[in-house]
């Protein structure tokens, strides 16, 4: 099946140099320290679909989001947008216009000194999509109406809106350059639960109407279940399991995915004891040898502690786990 791939990531890595300044490092005879925020991640996003990436804090989800829109350059591997390397794609205004990003914190992602009208119109002006002020104002009004606000709200400043309304403004802004691909970096995690559902429904509705493609970053599995076609589970800078969302939710194979799904509050689960995910995420500066999940994994054995698992295809799912490969169910 020839898929129409919008965004392709091939063994992408992003390292950050977190060493102390040169002089102090030399005096203390420390080596350079490198944080491997993203370490060899591969995925593809098909046109019109949603790929979600989930994982705990610090697993590199947001770094992937920023790599995907070219805010960071990869330290290794390659990202291709519409078949072009991301840096080349970003150099062309016509391709750059087709991607945009929605951010996590609606209180920080809108410039507090700008009127909403100017915030939403900035991409239109930047890409010179419309020239006359009247046309731009009309378009901004239409965009605000599309996300459930009033056209007259453009005159106000961001602080006059609630969190949910601000996220609607962010979406209107992201849509104003008529993009096809949107990277959403935890767009609902700063919002109340009731408002989250509204924003997610709005995003799904817009996806259907405008044929948008989403790369959706979240730590909330209930949100992800609602949104995704495909799902990737990240742990310590790597994707441990990726495949069709329905398949992963119905039949999680990686022990980490199982633990995450177990941790979702569920009415059926009331009164039953649950397996908590023990321990902390290890430091990505000094990751454990072998499988990065082995210190917390209930199925870990000697092989997991020494040998790094490779990605293998099990049916429609790609997974990196020795236990799943061997069909092991106990340590």
């Amino acid at each position: 099946m020839a898929e129409d791939i919008v965004l392709l990531a091939d063994q992408v890595s992003r390292y950050f140099d977190v060493s102390r300044p040169w002089l102090q490092r030399t005096l203390a005879r420390e080596p350079k320290q490198v944080l491997r925020a993203v370490d060899g991640v591969s995925f593809r996003v098909a046109r019109g679909s949603t790929l979600s990436l989930v994982g705990e804090s610090g697993c590199g989800k947001s770094t992937v989001a920023r790599l995907a829109v070219g805010l960071y350059t990869p330290s290794g591997g390659e990202i291709r947008f519409e078949g072009e390397a991301i840096s080349a794609a970003r150099a062309q205004p016509d391709l750059r216009r087709r991607m945009n990003m929605i951010f996590q914190d609606p209180y920080a992602s809108l410039n507090p000194r700008w009127r909403v009208r100017d915030i939403v119109a900035e991409p239109i002006r930047a890409f010179k999509l419309l020239s006359s002020t009247a046309d731009i104002n009309a378009r901004v009004g239409a965009l605000l109406t599309q996300v459930g606000l009033a056209a007259a709200d453009g005159e106000k400043f961001p602080h006059e809106f609630s969190g949910g309304q601000r996220q609607r403004i962010s979406i209107a802004r992201a849509l104003s350059s008529e993009p096809e691909f949107l990277v959403c970096d935890e767009p609902t995690s700063a919002l109340d639960v009731s408002v989250q559902a509204q924003i997610l429904n709005l995003m799904k509705d817009l996806q259907q109407r405008l044929g948008l493609t989403y790369l959706f970053i979240s730590h909330n599995l209930s949100v992800v279940r609602h949104m995704s076609d495909r799902l990737g589970v990240m742990y310590l800078g790597r994707i441990v399991e990726i495949g069709p969302a329905a398949e992963i939710f119905a039949n999680p194979r990686h022990p980490y995915t199982k633990l995450l799904l177990d941790a979702i509050p569920d009415l059926d689960m009331v009164g039953r004891s649950r397996t908590p995910v023990g321990g902390e995420v290890p430091s990505p500066i000094n990751p454990p040898p072998g499988c990065p999940f082995h210190p917390r994994c209930p199925l870990a054995n000697a092989r997991c502690k020494t040998e790094k698992p490779q990605v293998l295809h099990l049916g429609t799912v790609e997974i990196a786990c020795h236990a799943a490969e061997e069909g092991r169910t106990t340590a």
Binding site: G70, R90, R96, M99, N100, F103, W114, A126, S170
Partner: peptide, 23 residues
């Protein structure tokens, strides 16, 4: 994030400095 948002759509450094950050 509002500075990130401007960088994503390719706004130049000078414009980000003077029209986004300065106010």
């Amino acid at each position: 994030e509002y500075v990130m948002a401007a960088r994503v759509i390719g706004i130049g450094s000078a414009r980000i400095m003077f029209s986004h950050i300065l106010p």
